[in-house]
Simulated assay, not measured.
Amino acid sequence: MENRLIGLRKSMEKTTFKHLNFSEQQRKKVYEKINKTYENEEDVFLAVLQLLISEKTGYELAKLLRGRGIQKFEGNEGFLYTILHRLEQNHLIKSSWDNSGAKYYQLNDKGRKTLRKAEKTSTKKRLILKELIEG
């Protein structure tokens, strides 16, 4: 069982929900919703830009994205490299090769400016959503 679900059964037994029983089908649906990834391409782009403030290889970037819970490219690492290629074509990042043949990526000035703008937009969206939820 996943780490985040380890104490769930014991916790439920100690709460007012102890009288509830779930069918296997219901359990499966809950498990699918918990593990469903909700990130869209815009969220992935923002995370990539944020992580490329300092120089990283594609492999390092993939590890850090996984650490943030972004799984959109799982099983399809080509998706990540497509994003990096697109960012490079749009002159938002620069890349360089080291002597061992590893390619490193990092934001350039245009990329940092785009990141600041994207973070402001993202913050505005979150504030609007928070206002709508809280009334």
Rank of each mutant, 00 (worst) to 15 (best):
Q106Y: 06
L92I: 06
R86F: 05
G58N: 12
A62F: 10
A118C: 01
L92F: 14
K110V: 03
R116Y: 13
K94Q: 13
K72E: 05
R116S: 15
Y104D: 00
R68K: 15
E119I: 14
R116I: 13
G75W: 06
L61Y: 08
G75M: 06
F79R: 12
A62W: 08
I93N: 02
L65E: 10
I70C: 04
N90W: 02
E60T: 10
Y81P: 01
Q89A: 11
W97H: 10
Q71F: 07
S95G: 07
K120D: 12
E88S: 12
W97L: 14
S96H: 14
F79H: 10
F79W: 11
Y81F: 14
G78A: 06
S122R: 14
Y81T: 05
K117F: 09
T114A: 15
L65V: 11
K120L: 14
E74N: 11
H85I: 02
G101N: 03
T121Q: 13
H85V: 02
L92K: 12
Y81D: 00
G78T: 00
K120Y: 10
H91A: 08
N90F: 04
K94D: 13
K63G: 04
K94T: 13
R116C: 07
I70S: 08
K72Q: 09
G58P: 06
E88D: 13
E88Y: 07
L107W: 07
L65G: 08
T82M: 04
T121K: 15
E77P: 03
E77D: 03
A102N: 15
S122T: 03
K103D: 01
S122V: 00
R86D: 12
R86K: 13
L87C: 07
N90M: 10
T114I: 04
R68A: 05
L115P: 12
D98N: 15
K110P: 00
L107F: 08
I93W: 05
S95K: 14
G101F: 03
L92G: 00
G75C: 11
K113H: 09
